[in-house]
Every structure is written in C-alpha cells, then in structure tokens.
Design a binder for these strands. Sequence first.
DNA 1: GCGCACTATGACAACGTTGTCCCCCAGCGG
DNA 2: CCGCTGGGGGACAACGTTGTCATAGTGCGC
Lengths: 327, 327
Amino acid sequence: MNDVARLAGVSIKTVSRVVNDEPGVHPSTAERVLAAIDQLGFRRNLSARNLRRGSSTGTIGLVLEDVGNPFYSGVTRAVEEIARLRGRQVISGSSDEDPGRERELALEFCSRRVDGLLIVPAGLQHSYLVPEMRAGTPVVFLDRPAGDVVADTVLVDNIGGTVEAVTHLASHGHRRIAFLGDAPDIFTANERLRGYREGCVRAGIGYHEELVAMGPHDESSVRTTLQRLHGMREPATAIVAGNNRITVYILRSLADVAERPALVGFDDFELADLLSPPVTVIAHDASALGKAATDLLFARLDGDNSPPRRVVLPVRLVPRGSGEVHA
Amino acid sequence: MNDVARLAGVSIKTVSRVVNDEPGVHPSTAERVLAAIDQLGFRRNLSARNLRRGSSTGTIGLVLEDVGNPFYSGVTRAVEEIARLRGRQVISGSSDEDPGRERELALEFCSRRVDGLLIVPAGLQHSYLVPEMRAGTPVVFLDRPAGDVVADTVLVDNIGGTVEAVTHLASHGHRRIAFLGDAPDIFTANERLRGYREGCVRAGIGYHEELVAMGPHDESSVRTTLQRLHGMREPATAIVAGNNRITVYILRSLADVAERPALVGFDDFELADLLSPPVTVIAHDASALGKAATDLLFARLDGDNSPPRRVVLPVRLVPRGSGEVHA
DNA sequence: GCGCACTATGACAACGTTGTCCCCCAGCGG
DNA sequence: CCGCTGGGGGACAACGTTGTCATAGTGCGC
C-alpha cells in the first residue's frame, strides 16, 4: 500500500479510501491510484485489515473426522455453501478420531481467530474450549455431543434409526437379528446399539449379547463375525450395520455367499439402489446436518444468546430390497 | 497479552518471551506469566504474529470443483495430510465449474496471504494470477492445466486412459463403441474424447461422430442418448463413460435393461466391484494426484525455482466384468 | 473581501505481536 | 572500591491496515 501511495503520489490513507470505496476521493485521484494498484499487482492484506478493525476474520473452523469419508465431505460441502452466502471461508481439518488431534486443530483455529467453530468430537474432553467460548467464540458440535461442556449440538436420531431398523426386520419375520457396530466409545455407535437393544425388546425377540459385535471393524473382522453368526445353532437371519463403512464390509464379505441374511445399513450411500439386492438403509442427510449446524452457528454470530440448543434430525428407513427378505 | 502482562506484573515483551519459549526469563517470572495466561485463557493472535514477523501465514489455499464429489474429497484429504506434516492448515472452496467463482476464491485466498495455491481450474483465464505469482506465491494446477499462464501442473493420463479403454473393448470384439463425455470445454473431457478417437483409429474401427455424445449430462440426457445408441441401424455394443458421474447415470439407466452393452468407466468408484456385473474402469488415484500437487507446491516453498513442471500420472485399466463382455 | 461550508487529502495513532536495543543490578576479579 | 560481565527485563518501533482528526483549498453568499 505504501508502494502504491508512492507511485500514485498520494498518502496511504487515500489509497485505503480507494481500496475501500470510501467517498471523498476525487475521481482523477482514484484513477491514478487504481492504475498504480494495477501496475504493482497490489492486494490488500486481510490479516492487517482484520487486526486493525478488530473485526471478524471471516473464517469458520471445521473439525471433522475425515474429509475423505463421503458422509463428512457432504457435511463439508453444506457448511461451505452457507459460509459462502455469509461471506466466510472455511478452514477444515480431519481428526481421524484422535482427541489430541481434534484439540490441536480446534485450538489452532482459535489462534487464527476464526469467527466460529464446528466440531465433530473425537473425544469426550472439551473443557479446553471453555476459555474460547467464554471469550465469545461460538462452538457447535455436530454428529456427536461434547463431553463436558454445554453447547449447541446437532445430532441425528441414532436410537430411533436402529429401533426402526430392527422393527422393520422383525415385521418381516426375523427373530435372530445381529448388530455390527463401530467402537462402543464412539457416541453414535453406542446410541445405535441402544436403539438396537430397545428395538429387540419392543419387537419381543429379546436382546442377545451373542448377536452383537462392536468394533473397531475392518473387512476381515467383519468377515470373521459373519462366519460366527452364520455358524450358530440358531444363525442370525438378519443384520443391522452400524455405519456406511461396516455396510460395505458386509456387502464385500457376502459377495460370494449364496444364502444371504437380510440387511439394513445405517447411513445411505451412493449406488445402494443399484446393488443386487438393493440395500435397505436408515438414511439421514449429511447436508442437512451441516446446514443445521452452520445455521445455528450463524444465529449465534448474529447475536442469539438463548440457552444452548440440541437439535436432533430425523432419519428415515428407505426400503430397497435387502431388508425385505423374509426369514 | 497486555492483560496477561498487567496481571503478571511484567512487560508484554516478557510475556512474548514466555509464549515463544525464548531464553532469558527467570523461572519464577515465567511461572507467574503462565499462571496469568491460564487464568485469562489467553491465546496468541496468529494474525498479528504473522503480520509482525512478515513470515508465512501457515495456510494453503485449495480451490476445487466440489468437495462433495468423492474424487475431490480424496484429493482434499491427501492435500490436508501433507499440509499437516508441514505445519500448514488448508483453506478450501468449491468453484462449481464457475470460472468467476474460482477467481474470486483464489484472489480471496491471496488476500489472506496463503503460502501457496492449489487450483483445479474451472476456466481458461488465469492471467489474474500473474501478479500473485510474480509476488512469490507458488501456484500448482491440478487435474487440468491453466489457460494462459505457465505454471506447475499435475494431470492424469486422460488420453492414454481412453485409448486403453477403447483398445480393451475392441480386443473383445466390439466395433461399435460409443463415448459419453462431459462438456467439451472441460479440459479432461476433451482429452478423453481425443483418446477415444485415437483408440478407435488405432483399433481400425474408425471414428464415427454419431457414436459420441458430449455433455453436460444429467440422468435424463444419458437415458435419451442410450436409447438413441440402441436404436441405430448398427447399435453400439459397448460404451466408454467419460467420468464417474456419467458412469453412474449409465448404470442407473441400464438397471432395467436386459441386453446391456459392455461398459468401461473413467474414474474408479467405491462398490464398482460389487455391482453386477462389476464395472470395469480406468482408475487413477485421487490421493496420488493431491499428493503430487502438494509435494510440488512444497518444493517451491522450499526454494525450488526450476522451470515449471508438468507431471502426468498414469492410469490403469481395472477389468472387473462389464468391459469383458464379448460383442 | 470576508467568513463559511464543504471537498479532498494527509498526519498520526492504534490493532497485537515481535525484533532491536538499551538499562539495571548482582557478582566478581583486581 | 572500581569496573566489567552477564543475566533478566523493559521501551520502542515496526508489520499493513483503518479510524480520527486536522488542514488546505475552493466556491459561494453577503
């Protein structure tokens, strides 16, 4: 800006005025300044501007588990979309389910003075955010609740989802319904397990520990589990999968199996309708999740200081074939 | 920092020393300062720090087409991974194939003084980046080349890919091979068309305009095209799909068709192996693309000022079934 | 011709840091 | 007792902006 001022033969304040479209600059002066800007390729330094104005940095921090996972990339897309409408950029990072990494990312974002934080919690410890929140940085947790702070949270109806999955399978005559879920210390996995259990009880088929296998899962652990379930005296005739990855592992493991159990997967995924049989899922909308959380965040930025809210988004069962196989 | 200094009864410079682990602070003083920092929840303002030090902002700007697309979210993940190892955050944005939006994002990132830019070009005009590049911001284009500037570029072997697809289909006896590609003003679409044409010529089956349908495509345009191809006097017996979205549209359109043409899709996608028949694809690695581009960027940041490079990543044909149907 | 309003412009401080330089004081050798 | 050394700490400027206030010039009414 200094260089521009020198080249145009004006003070830096005048350059500032031109750059910010402030009134009170003579057209011919403005023209000279613009020419100088063009010639030097000047671009105003946003850091300095925000520092001086003490105003928003125009950024939102997003901490999620893994941008590579289609579910979270859908969330990211929705967040970005709304942030754009409100003139903000998104800085994001993946925690890979590591609480330390989550914390590191969130605090780094705070150091950059993001206007707000969206976090998919990896751990249960979030008191490290208390100073930031007290300092006025709004924080919204999504997909999972925070461990030890009270804050806005957007969840999906995990319990309702697995209740519905079990009810649906039971209505098709299944009495031996298995559940393959993610690691039980992950909030969503635990909730889905609770829903599964409740569904079993409601359907009058009872909860049987041996039909449950919690993760962490990979393709081979899923394969082993399926063999175990198949080899029982009373084999499982249906399976509820706890998330999209597990559903895929199950599909791969069953690819060369003739007699397939019924299957309902949690999370919808692309091409589920083109498999044979098409896969019945508990669907929920990644972009709705991202949108709800971002809307909440912006409401806070707009001055809403009502007590923290907890929003639970509905899920819906999409019957496609794999879950409508009779026992 | 001012408040911390006051509370600890020292000067702000001493606080700065403590925060930066600089030597020359008495342990007891440091302790007092740390206590004050803790009590006030102080976090150093990175913007101010970077402004003062004139150093890197520790950020990388990433402009891509759509984070929601699994291919680009794979790229994003790889970029993030490497940036993390090098202590950088990633700021990203989706252009949605809109050159204006791409430009807006890139320039906004420049205003934020990112250390470098990774761009999946939406348009052909990139001279707007010349001042930034001259000012020392390294820029790497990925997936597509820049329009009118010379810069580092990482591409995949689009031409080789479709040549191989056509050759493969011809070797299974197909002589009427169709090509459904994206809008021809998109670089990759155009390259893939060229490869298709070259493949046809090499295979000695000739290039026939009526077998080509360039986009933009949606599900219904693909459906119409397939009907046209099927209704010809000499119908197409095989199809090459220009990208993952088009492949999926084709699969959906063919879901209820008895007599299916052979199919090879460009871009691999999850579950391609579980469809029936499993889908043969020209695969290339999103994370390899992201990694190559980011490595190149960091090389520039490390001072490499050799002439701009153009890296072309190989593709490989993955035969799974849909492309091995004999004519 | 004088004062007044108004326009165009500039000088300067400040945002929150850090780099440079300087000062104070204790300890020590002569 | 003097001077020197070195450790601990502070004052001040500067990074690139913008907000505040001042000022010079211009035109206009009386």
